[in-house]
């Protein structure tokens, strides 16, 4: 087997079609993970020891086991679970699977943001008689979220690179298209190289952008904590 530029050129438009699906899926999974991340934070703040112990370990379990197996669980096993089981299409299964997996990461990001807010901010808002909801809305979250933006941005890039896992349960995006092409013509390397290039083309500039953001927010944050 030799490298063929013809095949390479020919597969570019084919893979490009899959790019949009990959991107769409990335964004859907990411939004799910961002929102679901709050769930873990909320659970870990319930002031009942066994409850937040339980949820901490559930999150740890999800975080430290392979997302691929979790995808298979949701796609192949969930439908046959008695009573609560439902059959999901590959798209929804991927959003749930990857979304839940990464929510255990976003929750850690939120937690670090919340913990970085000075204790005095809570006390001052108590002294001003704010309700719990008002403290979160006006004082804590506006300070906790901005410094986490670069970290959350990093997770968007990581998510982008994890999304090809969805091809294993039949989501037809870039990787799946490449493998299909390979199976048909027994030419794998060229389409796979095209896939890799698309990933590189998108994630490298994004990473540069994030590290810019990181510097900006770190500076702002330093200034804030230095002066309270």
């Amino acid at each position: 087997m030799t490298w063929s530029w013809e095949v390479f050129i020919e597969t570019i438009p084919l893979i490009f079609k899959g790019l949009w699906i990959t991107l769409g899926l990335t964004i859907a999974c990411y939004l799910f993970a961002m929102i679901a991340g709050f769930f873990w934070v909320f659970m870990s703040r319930i002031p009942i020891k066994p409850v937040n112990w339980l949820f901490r370990w559930i999150a740890e379990f999800i975080r430290s086991t392979p997302p691929l197996v979790q995808l298979f669980f949701i796609y192949y096993a969930w439908p046959v679970v008695p009573v609560i089981g439902v059959t999901l299409n590959p798209f929804v299964a991927a959003i749930l699977g990857l979304g839940i997996h990464f929510s255990t990461y976003t929750s850690e990001v939120y937690r670090s943001g919340i913990e970085s807010v000075d204790k005095g901010q809570w006390e001052a808002s108590t002294a001003l008689n704010l309700s719990t909801a008002q403290k979160w809305r006006y004082i804590i979250l506006p300070q906790a979220i901005p410094p986490t933006i670069p970290m959350l941005g990093n997770y968007l890039i990581i998510m982008f690179k994890e999304v090809p896992l969805a091809s294993t349960i039949g989501v037809v995006a870039m990787l799946h298209l490449a493998n299909d092409y390979g199976a048909q013509y027994y030419k794998y390397v060229e389409p796979l190289t095209v896939v890799a290039l698309f990933f590189l083309l998108l994630s490298y500039p994004s990473a540069l952008l994030i590290s810019r953001l990181e510097k900006k927010y770190n500076r702002r944050f330093d200034k804030k904590t230095a002066t309270l």
Binding site: A178, N179, Y188, L192, F199
Partner: peptide, 23 residues
């Protein structure tokens, strides 16, 4: 570093498994 961080592990895995022997 940038090549390997910029692409996806699963893509790399497939690529290696086809390209190493074939290419």
């Amino acid at each position: 570093v940038e090549i390997f961080r910029g692409t996806s592990l699963i893509v790399q895995l497939f690529w290696f498994s086809y390209a190493l022997p074939g290419l």
